[in-house]
Amino acid sequence: MSVNTDVKTYTGFRAMTLVCMFILYAPLIVVTAYSFNASESITTWGGWSLRWYVDVFSGPESAKFQQAAVNSFSIAIIAATTATAIATAAATAIVRGGKYRLRTPSLGLITLPIMVPEIVLAVATLIFFNSIGFTRGYMTILVAHIAFCIPFAYLPIQARMQGIEDTFEHAAMDLYATKAQAFRRILFPLMMPGIISGFLLAFIVSLDDFIITNFVKGAGVETLPTAIFGSVKQGLKPNIMAISTMLLSLSVVMVTISYFVSKWDNTK
């Protein structure tokens, strides 16, 4: 088909797409490339080297970043798991609970953390912890993460459940399965792709969060984003680029998994 006669195609749109891709990727590519820079200074190129990756694991700041990584990952795992469990229960009640008065307010409450601007949520959480006398530390970060991860876990699960016809569990119950059995044996496995996507989404959101964590973190408890922020404020250093590149690779792996999981259709 030729460009001029096809009503779908507009001249220049392909070029704009390439511009868009360039803008999205240029900074990431530059940082990835410079993370392999042998030079001490970020401004000059001194040839390829893995020294900054070694530095991340054994350099002077390694202990700080390792502790931050342990905090970040433990918080992300616990928060994402808890949020996914809560979201799965909530999605079942919303999608399979019939029509009832509390349904719309519940949905509103569940999606509240993504409606409220992040800085506002951060301020509200800080004030709240302060007013109930909760000392800032690891637990305040964890609790805040569980709360704001719920909608991110919820949305993919709800979307998935809506695509599953209730004939599946009705058929099971016609065969004398209890409702609990029908859920465990039929509905839950069918929901799995949504649950996995929800978990991954919540995991990444927790791992990436800076603004809220920065407000509620306590003495010496850093997560990777707050540790990186503390470090880059004094200037971008090559070891930060190496950490960023590793986090970038991790994100790519996670998105790739979630991409394939979302294509996995087990209702057929």
């Binding site: 909530a90 079942t92 009640a93 399979r96 609970g97 029509k99 509390l102 409702k179």
Partner: peptide
């Protein structure tokens, strides 16, 4: 759908 109507409040 209302398969899990009875449990909805507990689930929420």
């Amino acid at each position: 759908s209302d398969t899990y109507k009875e449990a909805r409040h507990w689930l929420l």
